[in-house]
């Protein structure tokens, strides 16, 4: 069973008279454990696709099956549970809570996990959050607020937040877009390590060098999938 299966996804935005096909019959499957990068020019629908995959948005048409569950049939609460338990989302703009420390930011998903698992004590949450921060190399910065951290560090906090619940699937929408190439490399290495531990990673990027590090590259244009190639194993 594929982890992700989409077929004929469509998403249309209307701006006045203009109709934008952000997604136009996009179909593919992603197996568990894969490392996929999605490339394409600006405005071709990459973010739209990622948002739908991450259950943040819904398609207008088409099927999306996640772990065998047709997503359309899920309730709002079930989607929230999947976002919490199965998916880690990394945003281009980090999306950290500005007033909360790195630790509190990383703990945040666990607070909502407590609804599903009563064994989540405050001590356990703290421990898991510290572990996640340690994995991204930020154990020295747990008390810092986002505005006291560099861009690369912020993105690592965001990644720690995405990892803290040990998700099956990590979705990253241009995680290195706002970073210099050195920081970008660090982030990429993090994803590679995660993937080697069995986590499925889907990453949007503009940078061809970064895209080439993935095992599979999907290219998009005007909402359509135009190319889907698997890199020869190295």
């Amino acid at each position: 069973m594929a982890l992700i299966e989409i077929s004929n996804l469509r998403k249309v935005f209307r701006m006045g008279d203009e109709v934008i096909h952000a997604l136009d019959r996009a179909s593919f499957t992603i197996e568990e454990g894969d490392f996929v990068s999605i490339v394409g020019p600006s405005g071709c629908g990459k973010s739209t696709l990622m948002n739908i995959l991450g259950l943040l948005d819904s398609p207008d048409e088409g099927q999306y099956t996640l772990e065998g569950h047709p997503v359309q049939t899920l309730s709002d609460n079930q989607r929230a549970e999947l976002r919490n338990q199965k998916i880690g989302f990394v945003f281009q703009t980090f999306n950290l809570l500005p007033r909360a420390s790195a630790l509190r930011n990383v703990e945040m998903p666990l607070v909502y996990s407590a609804s599903y698992d009563r064994s989540f004590s405050p001590v356990k949450m703290r421990e898991m959050a510290l572990q996640a921060l340690d994995r991204v190399g930020l154990s020295q910065r747990v008390a810092h607020k986002p505005n006291e951290l560099s861009g690369g560090q912020r993105q690592r906090v965001a990644i720690a937040r995405a990892l803290v619940n040990r998700p099956k699937l990590v979705l990253a929408d241009e995680p290195t877009g706002n970073l210099d190439s050195k920081s970008g490399q660090d982030i990429l290495q993090l994803f590679e390590r995660l993937n080697s531990e069995g986590v499925t990673v889907v990453m949007v990027t503009h940078d061809p060098k970064i895209a080439e590090r993935a095992r599979r590259v999907i290219a998009m244009l005007d909402g359509k999938i135009t190319e889907d190639r698997r890199r020869a194993h190295s």
């Binding site: 943040l56 709002d76 609460n77 976002r83 338990q85 989302f89 909502y112 609804s115 619940n165």
Partner: peptide, 16 residues
């Protein structure tokens, strides 16, 4: 609003 979006994205339900 942004904070609400972030919380919802990491798994907060409407009730939360």
């Amino acid at each position: 609003t942004k904070e609400i979006g972030i919380r919802r994205a990491v798994g907060a339900r409407q009730l939360d």
